[in-house]
Design a protein around this nucleic acid. Structure first.
Lengths: 246, 246
DNA sequence: GAGTGGTCTAGACCACCAA
DNA sequence: TGGTGGTCTAGACCACTCT
């Protein structure tokens, strides 16, 4: 059952996402939305409250409801000494890791930039759901340049674009066997409120944010071999890093 | 101006925090709260909506409003190879780092555990506000065992318990000069909705979660030298880690 | 002053759950 | 079946911002 205010929220959200309401611009005023949708004031306010808690808009008295710009400013962690070690945590992984889909795609600009590929390149995209217990705790979306996917198929015989193929070993080992050894991994962690899709997939209660991780794996020549986006449920996820100082 | 529903939300929140409403138990039903506070139904619902978006309670039709248990399950990152490098990001630090307070304290159990100290130990606690531009982007709370603070004062002449003392160099250099070299740093990152205090301090818009980092620094013998908690505004923060694989 | 969103009311009907 | 929260109305008054 989809209710009136949810419908209004959805239409406004679509308008924000497709650019009808650009960041910095304003939504129509409450009285206007009341006329447009022929509903009472509180119904409109419920819709706007929903968008507000999703982090999309900021209503201000006497001004209007402004569409937010959600580009976070980086504020990196400062290490005193760079040389360090990163250790895997034992017994903390997901207890189920399901490949939801896999195949060839022409990715959007963001992925092209992360992989430093020319426009319209083909890549392998893999979508995974990692669960802890009954619930999905983390969504993983992964992209590999065609060159990398192809040499892995040639040298290791694993077709990563086939969702039914379960790799015999982890991706980094496959890369090494194919002669493209991963050398550095960069991860950037941030947080935000979940999208309605993520709420549904991970069964997120209201008011639970997600932990978002962007990863880029590179070889010796600093050429990207893989990139991935992790979206983890904030109420059942944390990530840890251990660093050895010299 | 504090409104009626904010007042009700505050009283209920206090009840949750002081244990009157334990995790798993239920808040009084809406009709009862209407009688208790002599307000209309929607006023009570506004109060509950607020707690909901703060991640404290989960209302369910036909059941009641349940107090949530907010202990996240760990799901650590799995590295394929442990040995790695962690590089500082250039030009990404805060442009202002103010020591808000500093002094000796008897910390709560959580800090005692993180520092592996006997109960009732004295520690130096330092509170910092790190800003990016006009706004506070991250709160940092730091604790040092008395042993560590004392030897730093002896060997480096820096009294870390004095809020007006600006250290001549970074903490890890001071530790090395005092003969207690930091050897490993472990960080655990998670996310949640901000508390009302954090909303005020960092001027957080509604619907913005915070990125929480727990850090423990240890020496060669794996004895904790320092621990810190970072709370970063989710709309203006991210943290990055770079790892060199062997 | 005109327009914006914020709070609150009194009442209604609905969807869901447990006994 | 009775109690729970979820949605919605029509109207009122208030606080705030802009011009």
């Amino acid at each position: 059952m989809t209710t009136r205010y949810q419908e209004i929220a959805r239409e406004l959200r679509d308008g924000i996402e497709n650019g009808t309401y650009a960041p910095g611009s304003k939504l129509p005023a409450i009285p206007e939305l009341m006329r447009t949708y022929d509903v009472a004031r509180d119904t409109v306010r419920d819709a706007i409250a929903r968008l507000t808690h999703e982090g999309l808009v900021t209503p201000r008295r006497g001004v209007g409801t402004t569409v937010r710009d959600n580009t976070p400013v980086a504020l990196g962690y400062r290490a005193d000494q760079p040389a360090a070690t990163w250790s895997a945590q034992a017994g903390e992984g997901p207890d189920s890791d399901r490949i939801e889909s896999a195949g060839w795609e022409t990715p959007d600009r963001g992925i092209i930039e992360r992989l430093e590929l020319p426009p319209n390149s083909q890549v392998v995209r893999r979508l995974r759901h990692q669960s802890k217990g009954e619930q999905v705790a983390q969504l993983m979306e992964q992209w590999l340049p065609d060159m990398v996917a192809n040499i892995i198929e040639e040298h290791a015989g694993t077709d990563l674009a086939d969702p039914d193929v379960v790799p015999s070993t982890d991706l980094y080992s496959l890369m090494r066997r194919a002669g493209e050894s991963p050398s550095t991994v960069t991860e950037r962690l941030s947080t935000r409120m979940p999208t309605p899709d993520e709420v549904e997939l991970m069964e997120l209660p209201a008011g639970v944010p997600v932990l978002v991780t962007y990863r880029v794996t590179r070889n010796d020549a600093s050429i990207p071999l893989e990139t991935a986006t992790f979206v983890g449920a904030g109420d059942r996820m944390s990530q840890s890093f251990t660093v050895n100082l010299q």
